[in-house]
């Protein structure tokens, strides 16, 4: 446990097969317990999805993992080393190795696309101007935004903003990227495109991805592992195939919600068409 954290993009093998391990994480806001002992193990270099209905505590979980919120109890281990967020050095080294993609992209609207991507390099590394320019342009080009370097985020379309946010997340060559509801508010075609993009760049750059979403169809296709968060606890964790065949009641109700909707609607329609029973 005393091995110092490795810095940069060198991927060590200290944590075994799991890059991120969460054990019994708890968080409440006042009397309202949001996380009631969440335990997870995210395999290295894979795409891990946490599913759950709105309000299940998915975003809070992600914020605890990214240390925007401080958990009340439990521990998080990254690359085999327990994180102590009260310790500045431990926190900084964790943050250097991870990136976070916000639901609303959180792009800096007063900076150009290029400056948005260059900012993390400018502020957290001691690279020279030329090196920063090269790396930022490379990241933009990889996400097909090379022609938009001088545009402000507000003038880009929603999909481009998402890609710009991803470019900013990967420019520091993180080992792990957290995605908070990357498909929220998008139409089905765009949702597909976003998942395809995440999967594509995840294989391209080899980072470990943790996605929090409620879009069950796309998640099941794209992920390596799926976990279901229900009422502040993980009630299922396994491969998409296992998820599809699980007999767990919560999994079933979540998985079969489109079918349930159909039957409800069918029932309603039948009720409306049928003559009133007298």
């Amino acid at each position: 446990m005393t091995t110092p954290l490795q810095t940069g993009s060198e991927i060590g093998g200290q944590g075994g097969n799991f890059l991120l391990e969460v054990d019994d994480l708890r968080k409440s806001f006042g009397p309202h317990a949001v996380l009631r002992g969440v335990s997870l193990a995210v395999p290295r270099g894979r795409l891990f999805t946490v599913l759950g209905p709105s309000g299940a505590g998915k975003s809070v979980l992600l914020k605890c993992l990214a240390n925007i919120e401080e958990p009340d109890d439990g521990q998080i281990s990254f690359d085999g080393r327990r994180l102590d967020f009260r310790d500045q050095a431990s926190r900084d080294s964790f943050r250097r190795r991870c990136s976070f993609l916000f639901q609303g992209n959180a792009l800096f609207d007063s900076l150009t696309a290029f400056r948005n991507v260059a900012l993390p390099l400018e502020q957290t590394t001691s690279l020279g101007r030329g090196e920063i320019r090269g790396r930022a342009m490379e990241a933009l080009e990889q996400l097909e935004l090379g022609d938009y370097a001088d545009h402000y985020p507000g003038t880009l379309s929603g999909g481009m903003q998402k890609r710009l946010a991803l470019a900013r997340a990967i420019v520091t060559q993180p080992e792990m990227v957290f995605f908070d509801e990357p498909t929220a508010g998008l139409d089905p075609l765009r949702r597909n495109a976003v998942f395809a993009m995440i999967a594509k760049y995840q294989t391209l750059f080899g980072f470990t991805a943790l996605i929090v979403t409620h879009d069950i169809v796309e998640a099941l296709v794209a992920s390596d592992t799926v976990a279901l968060l229900h009422q502040g606890e993980i009630c299922f964790c396994g491969t998409p195939d296992e998820f599809a065949s699980s007999a767990h009641p919560v999994v079933q109700s979540f998985r079969d919600s489109p079918a349930a909707l159909r039957s409800t609607l069918d029932g309603l329609r039948r009720g409306a068409d049928a003559p009133e029973p007298s």
Binding site: I68, S99, F102, Q103, A106, L107, F108, L119, Q123
Partner: peptide, 21 residues
């Protein structure tokens, strides 16, 4: 507005001191 659109949180997760910046 930067707080609202999570830009401040984004700075923090990048390891940039939001106060300092």
């Amino acid at each position: 507005i930067q707080r609202n659109s999570e830009q401040i949180a984004a700075l923090d997760t990048m390891g940039i001191s939001s106060c300092g910046y």
